[in-house]
Design a binder for these strands. Sequence first.
DNA 1: ACCTGAACACCGTTCAAGT
DNA 2: ACCTGAACACCGTTCAAGT
Lengths: 228, 228
Amino acid sequence: MPAEATSSDVFWLRDEVARPPRRNTPLSLARIIDAAITELDATGVDRLTMRRLAERLEVTSTALYWHVKTKEDLLDLALDHVVGEVPVPAPDVPPRAGLQKLLVGWYSAMVAHPWSPSLLGRPLLGPNVLTRTEYIQAKLVEDGLAGKDLAAVTHTLAGLVLGSAMADATWQRIDDPAAIAKVRAHILDSADRYPTLSTSGFVDAGWSDNELFALGLDRVLDQFLGTK
Amino acid sequence: MPAEATSSDVFWLRDEVARPPRRNTPLSLARIIDAAITELDATGVDRLTMRRLAERLEVTSTALYWHVKTKEDLLDLALDHVVGEVPVPAPDVPPRAGLQKLLVGWYSAMVAHPWSPSLLGRPLLGPNVLTRTEYIQAKLVEDGLAGKDLAAVTHTLAGLVLGSAMADATWQRIDDPAAIAKVRAHILDSADRYPTLSTSGFVDAGWSDNELFALGLDRVLDQFLGTK
DNA sequence: ACCTGAACACCGTTCAAGT
DNA sequence: ACCTGAACACCGTTCAAGT
């Protein structure tokens, strides 16, 4: 039998504030991943700790472990989330154009989150990675590749994208122009040991990494694909 | 004035064992790097700690800091040491053959130390790396490349080698056949989402990574170099 | 179900002190 | 010059306990 309501016990007059303090927002896997990526973009991979991440989310570090098994799992999720930003071309885009678009997008997404290539040492098996790998192979098959050729081209394209992203992201993370100048000076000072590097424009960065990647990829696709 | 020797104070009778216990071998930067690589080969990159490394060398962990500034410096040195294993072809080897040889050697050295690609996130500026980068560009110039083309081809080849080494080393580190089987099963179970991957041989590893890399590199060099 | 607090077993690194 | 010992300021993670 429900207790009879007195005039003082009315919903509108009840002291809402006295209730257990409402969390700002309940924690969730998605929120944790978002916060991790924000933190990684801001501070880089070796500054991300579970404690700092928890602080940003206004919870205890140990609270994270209800949603995520380990820090490594979290990093895997963050990496796959970045790959999820890569647009997958529409099905009717022809192989050559579609591949170029997807691979440039993949490269760009990783360079935009320069910490992400340093996570490549772990198996890439997230749904976003697999979806895009499926696209790559599907387009190669559509272009007529199969068997060993297909395998070799898939490996080559994947290696090229990931390796270029890794190399370029490494340099991009160095925001100190003095450090860049030091590298330049080091090579130029050793012109006897590095005669080509010191005179070929290698240290002068006359072209953007992005530009060079797109150019190289274009020619590699020329070699591997029949149609243009 | 030297104290006169008594008959009991003879070199041959002196108690050698009572002297300060001779260290097995004095520490040195080279010995530290060697030990680090041995440890890395045996246990992988995230199991290497300064304390464990010190234990292997029979010193205190803090002793290492007299020879090395930070752990990161040590890892940079270890990586450059691995690249030092890559043979540089003789000067009279023609560009195409020389490049193929050096790049396959680079790939092989990194895969042989599967922890090394995961260190690529740091700038590659060691002497062994620069020597081999110099060789690559010198041979490309010898083949007639210059300017933007030279820059693009250098970046492409470097990206391809490092990315392929990274990807293949990742899989090689998984020595548990059950884990591999799980990946296979995961993709085959999702054949509707991954129709190409599940039927193209992607999961069957009919060819070695080494073989596929060499094949892909060969065709890329065909595209970039004039002579064969 | 979801989070806190205390605790454990580690880390890299510094620095005074020894030889 | 080269190494030890103690100490500092962190880590990731577990687990009992709270709500």
